[in-house]
Design a protein around this nucleic acid. Structure first.
Lengths: 187, 187
DNA sequence: GTCTATAAAAGGATAGAC
DNA sequence: GTCTATCCTTTTATAGAC
């Protein structure tokens, strides 16, 4: 297989297991069966490799979330909270192996700037589109508390890195989060 | 102040900001205004220092969670879901500065084994006591889905590291999580 | 208890042969 | 594209003076 791809695979695996700072270039090239200099040749630096890894994982999830929202809005009428939750949460379960899940955790949780450098799009997507749709679906809720809940939703889907994966996990998550998002405003 | 305490404070701050692997002993002793050899003298190694840091943060939270549960159970009758949620979530907001919150995230999320070495008690507390009480409060829910929800609760309280801190955050979190935990079983 | 000095290893990066 | 060899820096850890 492509050396470049093998480096991405190995880095994805190791970053997920040990974090950015805990993973050395030597460990990555070792795991990939490539030469120590290969990371420099293909990506320039360890930080650039990390950005490529994060990008490869996050972009398809982002795209699917966007398409799901498009579909909901195109159907006409205001989508219900549960539909919005599923549209957002679903793609995270589609791609979800234990490894991918753990990597997402690492990407969003790793304090190393190199890992978070590619998270921007997720948040932009939220702010600009899902948040607006949720606000219409939850008219009684103050914007700040809605923000709080949206972050809670992200936390559950990203961090809850244990079984089950796939369909059952998705359904449980939607139940859990739709109820949480739909709670009456505090006070 | 005590050099040992200053090392703990500095390490707590830096581990929270940069993770375990991203923080060097030099950075810690520098921040603490102590000598490079001080970590070895007081704690033996960087890993032992990390364990001490994690322990110092987690133990009081754990204790408060246990006491809250004791109090609920001593009051007689079966506690409601919202009460159980508040008993568990509350202590996480009491101690919650932005820094502490972020450190909890690092402790639970950092792939470095040294950081997670002190998480055992949290999970034990869950399994043995809160889980049983929640199961009585949610009789229709299968044990596996309950487990899923409990992990979701932990994710929200620990990861949601942004504002607000303190009372308002606690109330919002309880609203959010009580609704989520009380959702009817999936299907 | 605190400091200096240093050992010993690991890390990121790159030059240059092939 | 791939490899070896190497530079330079940073890191953990400890020995021993004060």
């Amino acid at each position: 297989m492509d050396t470049r791809t093998q480096l991405l695979d190995a880095a994805e695996r190791l970053f997920a297991e040990r974090g950015y700072s805990g993973t050395s270039i030597r460990a990555i090239t070792n795991e990939a069966g490539a030469n120590l200099a290969a990371v420099g040749y293909y990506f320039g630096s360890k930080a650039d490799l990390a950005a490529a890894v994060a990008r490869r994982v996050i972009e398809p999830i982002n795209a699917a979330q966007g398409e799901n929202l498009d579909r909901l809005l195109a159907a006409g009428g205001e989508p219900a909270v549960a539909d919005l939750v599923e549209a957002f949460v679903g793609p995270l379960f589609d791609v979800r192996s234990a490894r991918t899940s753990r990597l997402l955790m690492t990407i969003l949780g790793d304090p190393a700037e190199e890992m978070r450098s590619w998270v921007g799009p997720v948040e932009a997507m939220f702010r600009d589109r899902y948040l607006a749709a949720l606000q219409r679906a939850l008219p009684g809720l103050a914007e700040q508390e809605l923000w709080f809940r949206v972050r809670g939703m992200l936390a559950v889907t990203v961090v809850d890195r244990i079984e089950p994966t796939g369909d059952e996990g998705r359904r449980w998550a939607v139940t859990f989060l739709a109820a949480a998002m739909s709670a009456p405003p505090t006070r």
